[in-house]
């Protein structure tokens, strides 16, 4: 199939960018979206032009690097699908496709479709861990955790830190990301000791990094390629309330 792409091109962080139009020719429906972009880039290189810069790593939906807003939806909008897992069979011959980078103050564009998502790391550094002596390996079942609790924590831990929640949020808030980390650790015995500092410090880091405030639009939940639920934001709110009540 043949497609018309409108791709955000921006030479560097300080330069103004704009959408440019390219033709993607002879694309197979079995190609992934990133493979389609690879083809377009080969043509660009052959023509002596600068290829489209985009992030990717695993190409199997687990690293969270492939950050693109496709036709107005983060990762293209398919349920639980990252861009690398999006296939061209989801498009039709002759389609126009608009490809933009994540847009948020906290995610400055580096080049074309590549943004700097280090702000999420700063939130993690503010409390997304437990401080404990690792010592020797503990016995498998020394610490008893009920299965539903383990499942709950696992659901939260599915977050791959891709930033689609921020990209889709009308407020550019990273609350879903932050809540997944807070909820995961708050559910488990290892995380309880530092729970109060964690929720305060991580949400403060969220503001300090320039993300917006959550106003319950719930766009993040639909955009999340891992299906993280906004119930974790409710959990984060409960954890925060505990720090107020003391």
């Amino acid at each position: 199939m043949n497609l018309t792409l409108h791709v955000w091109r921006q030479k560097g962080p300080q330069v103004k960018g704009k959408l440019e139009t390219y033709q993607a020719k002879n694309i197979s429906e079995d190609q992934s979206f990133l493979e389609m972009l690879d083809d377009v880039n080969e043509d660009l290189i052959k023509a002596g032009k600068d290829p489209i810069a985009f992030d990717h790593d695993c190409r199997e939906g687990i690293c969270g690097m492939c950050s693109q807003v496709i036709n107005g939806k983060a990762h293209g909008g398919d349920e639980r699908t990252t861009v690398c897992q999006l296939h061209m069979r989801r498009f039709n011959d002759g389609d126009d496709i608009v490809i933009e980078p994540w847009r948020a103050k906290a995610f400055p564009v580096q080049k074309d479709l590549i943004v700097d998502r280090a702000a999420l790391d700063v939130i993690m550094q503010a409390g997304g861990y437990t401080s404990c002596h690792t010592g020797g390996v503990a016995d498998g079942n020394a610490l008893l955790i009920p299965k539903p609790t383990a499942d709950y924590a696992m659901d939260a831990a599915e977050c791959i830190g891709c930033g689609a929640c921020v990209a889709s949020c009308p407020n550019s808030s990273a609350m879903l990301f932050t809540s997944a980390k807070v909820a995961q650790l708050a559910a488990l015995p290892q995380g309880k000791a530092e729970a109060k500092d964690r929720v305060r410090n991580m949400t403060q880091a969220l503001l300090d990094e320039g993300f917006g405030n959550c106003t319950n639009h719930y766009e993040c939940q639909d955009a999340c390629p891992k299906g993280i639920s906004v119930k974790f934001i409710a959990k984060l709110n409960r954890e925060y309330l505990k720090t107020v009540a003391k």
Binding site: V69, N71, K73, S168, H217
Partner: peptide
């Protein structure tokens, strides 16, 4: 965004 489609 040039195009933004909200889902929820």
């Amino acid at each position: 965004y040039a195009i933004q489609v909200t889902q929820k």
